[in-house]
Design a protein around this nucleic acid. Sequence first.
DNA 1: CCTACCGATCGGTAGG
DNA 2: CCTACCGATCGGTAGG
Lengths: 190, 190
Amino acid sequence: MSRKLEIQTAAQRLFKKHGYAVASMRDIASEMDMEAASLYNHIESKEEILYNICFGLANKLNNAIEEVNDIYFNSEEKLRMAVKFHIETLCEDLDAAYVFVHDWKYLTGQALKDFKASRDMYENGIRTIVEGGEKEGLFEENNKGFATLTILSSLNWIVEWYKTEGRLSPKEIAEKLSDFILTGLKKEKL
Amino acid sequence: MSRKLEIQTAAQRLFKKHGYAVASMRDIASEMDMEAASLYNHIESKEEILYNICFGLANKLNNAIEEVNDIYFNSEEKLRMAVKFHIETLCEDLDAAYVFVHDWKYLTGQALKDFKASRDMYENGIRTIVEGGEKEGLFEENNKGFATLTILSSLNWIVEWYKTEGRLSPKEIAEKLSDFILTGLKKEKL
DNA sequence: CCTACCGATCGGTAGG
DNA sequence: CCTACCGATCGGTAGG
């Protein structure tokens, strides 16, 4: 692992633990057994680290949702694949995922604008799937926006509680979550 | 409105906008057209403000979930009432709600411990409802913990996107969310 | 990768 | 409610 990547890894652990604003360059340096000033031989700024975390995940997720919308025909299948990929991606690197969900707002200037645009694109990708489901008669109609937000909320909330040593694997969580979204808790229709 | 409450209100606006760690006492003072030092005639510390925001909401929600579990008989009714109260409470004061969901982790010492305990109690309240629903044969079995987390995620996510001037009232959102949780998106059973 | 250091800003106090 | 100020800490730079 390159020194830069080691810094990234140490940093995202501390960003998750204390928050981006509170975790200091000196904290990160201390984890790396070096002085804060030395970090700048490998990185440009504190924000560069945040940038790499946030856009690393944003790009991965956006590529995936595009692919899912291209490849699969059936809306249920599309939703299941999107959920699976989202959960697996977040669980692959929980520290980065937590920071991605919480601390993107500390990006500034153009980076912040770009991130918001990227997030809107992803939201649109999910909305497209829900719309497709409505047209197929698979989903209830007239709650696109609402359903989209509810789906995203349950997808991202996983960074709050998922533990690597837990009972359920990311794949199993994705399946349960898809079932939940597609049929809900109730056995019969109201 | 008392001076202390005015400070609280200004503070939670800024905590939501910039995050607790980043918003400074000088920022709050500036909003109040006074000097930072003068704030301390009304409050003890920055953390006291955070404490009041977090426990104000935590206590309100915990009282409500207890009441719901006491009063109502049917699990579906219980869930609908809990969702309604949760959404309405968060939407009543969106700034405070946002801080409550995001910035409680900046509490320290005993306050942090107490908050976590309070949050666990609320989670247990929701779990109790889901368990009741299982026993009544209303909900699928064997996904208590999972369902509880998914419900809480969609309840709290509302602080991310709700706007006072939006199309849906809190009551309407609560109804849609309850429907979503109880029956899901799909028209027929898989 | 280090020592030494910069200007800025932080939460908070003293004293009036 | 203010002026004046404290010690601590911040992200980052200079120079080696």
